[in-house]
């Protein structure tokens, strides 16, 4: 195991984040605050509680999730796309570094950043609405698992993309709609039965609900099922990355 390399990549990537600390942290915090002002305070005050949870508190896990998903994907994809774009990837490819080590470095750094961001948003949310976390250990586990699996997904995106547009398209065109339609702002049980069925094909429903369960102890979907969905997603992403490194797809000509 080339741990020096893992450490070097991890530190390098986190260093890149620190250089752009303001954009990295400020923009998600600002947009989340806006959501709380609009949905939590302005609209939420006219909404009834959902399963005994105030509307403002109800949307907290979903909003953290939204930030977590988009940030994990964009950080990890950018982290690996940038060296491909500038050509500095040659160094990684010529180094005695295995796929797993490169992953630990790049995905580890992107996931770390997402977790920190999730915690900051959590803190910001607490300023707007009071809430308690019923299962903090589970909440932490979801936070980490989701950050890691979507950073993995972002890593794949960064390898697949052949232009900056593609890097932006996936988070904006796929993840954001799926998150909005995934029960961020409502309970799936509030939907008419037909739409409820459709929603169950949206994988993000499982993430949001699992995460919300860890906050408030209730969920539209069984927690075990949520967890196994994340597990499956992570396993698929891992498999794809290992395949990419083995075949050299998009990396080695």
């Amino acid at each position: 195991m080339n741990l020096h390399a893992v450490r070097a990549i991890y530190a390098f990537e986190l260093g890149r984040t620190l250089r752009t600390l303001f954009q990295s942290i400020a923009s998600p915090v600002i947009s989340t605050s806006l959501y709380f002002i609009v949905f939590g305070s302005a609209i939420g005050s006219r909404m009834q509680t959902i399963d005994g949870v105030s509307y403002g508190a109800f949307i907290v896990p979903g909003l953290i999730m939204l930030a977590l998903l988009t940030e994990s994907i964009s950080n990890a994809s950018f982290g690996i796309y940038l060296p491909r774009f500038t050509g500095t990837i040659y160094e990684l490819l010529s180094a005695p570094v295995s796929a797993i080590e490169a992953l630990m470095g790049y995905v580890g750094a992107a996931a770390t950043k997402s977790v920190i961001l999730g915690l900051i948003i959590l803190g910001t949310a607490r300023l707007f609405v009071p809430f308690e976390i019923v299962h903090p250990v589970w909440a932490a586990a979801f936070l980490v698992l989701i950050s890691v699996s979507f950073s993995l997904f972002g890593f794949i995106l960064g390898l697949w993309a052949d232009g900056f547009e593609k890097l932006q398209v996936v988070p904006i065109m796929i993840i954001t709609p799926l998150t909005f339609l995934g029960g961020t702002f409502y309970s799936v049980s509030m939907l008419p039965p037909a739409w409820r069925t459709v929603t169950l094909f949206n994988p993000i429903v499982y993430l949001v609900n699992g995460f919300r369960w860890s906050f408030y102890g209730q969920s539209d979907i069984a927690v075990g099922f949520s967890l196994s969905m994340i597990g499956v997603f992570m396993a698929v992403c891992l498999g794809i990355v290992v395949w990419i490194f083995r075949t050299g797809w998009r990396l080695r000509s």
């Binding site: 080339n2 260093g15 160094e91």
Partner: peptide
């Protein structure tokens, strides 16, 4: 091909680590 925003010092130390030293 270089990391434009890195310092020389960081870039060279990074390379050393990447190669397992």
């Amino acid at each position: 091909a270089t990391d434009m925003f890195e310092t020389v010092w960081h870039a060279v130390n990074f390379s050393r680590g990447l190669f397992g030293k």
